[in-house]
Design a protein around this nucleic acid. Structure first.
Lengths: 127, 127
DNA sequence: GGGTGTCTGCTAAAAAATTAGCACTATGCT
DNA sequence: AGCATAGTGCTAATTTTTTAGCAGACACCC
């Protein structure tokens, strides 16, 4: 039922940071963490996440730059699927409605136009 | 940045189950878990989650029925906010588009109609 | 009445996560 | 050359999670 592999607390925090940033060094990850642990701790986590196949790294000069193995859009879908299943009784409609409601003031006219178009297209697909 | 309190792995699994079910006994939670630990383990988790203020319980005859302190819709919003921030660079539009895309075949005409209406209304609000 | 099943309370053990620290290398700078 | 800085590799210790197990209460059924 759960698409994401079971990660521990810090592991998830760190994955979240790297998904946000795209790529990141240990120092950068550290900088993003709210209750920063030691540099060492972060490096250890990165190493473990790499062992678990969640991350990979490239050498950039003297340092490692980490990036996720699963591309962000795929991970995003997976995360949405979980949220919908857990909190919205599997109803994508409810989730979308909530998202729109939450962001009413933030969504621009253009964005809303594009979404309207998207819905139109979905309606046609479903015939 | 993260709305949900930091829970451990099993703790999150269990919270997820209870959010799905609404209310649940230890046995019911156990039944929902994919790689079921012992009954005892589940009970311990429930107790800890209650200590942490995530759950509360009522007595139902001889047994405890647990439910979350944060209502599911509020927790759902929080979860969506996190997902949008982490995987969609903060763009609600992208998240909505992805949700619709993921569910094109699943969303009924009626659901799409309601969403279209919702978007119309949001457009009017934003003026 | 006695046995059986299902619950809680509690405590202790095992496993996993998380952190810290030291040694070593490369790089850049003066 | 010599020094400071910023990295990695590795190992060990600490802390938190996670699990198991036993004892007692309560209900139910034969």
């Amino acid at each position: 039922m759960n698409g994401l592999p079971d990660l521990s607390r810090r592991e998830r925090q760190i994955m979240s940071v790297i998904h946000r940033l795209g790529r990141a060094t240990a120092a950068e990850v550290l900088g993003e963490l709210q209750d920063p642990p030691s540099y060492s701790a972060v490096r250890a986590m990165l190493r473990i996440l790499e062992e678990k196949g969640q991350l990979r790294h490239e050498q950039d000069g003297p340092r490692y730059v980490y990036f996720t193995t699963v591309p962000v859009d795929r991970a995003g879908r997976s995360a949405l699927r979980d949220v919908v299943a857990t909190f919205f009784a599997g109803s994508a409609e409810e989730a979308v409605a909530t998202l729109i409601d939450m962001n009413e003031r933030k969504l621009t006219g253009e964005e809303l136009d594009r979404l309207a178009q998207l819905i139109d297209r979905a309606r046609e697909e479903g015939r």
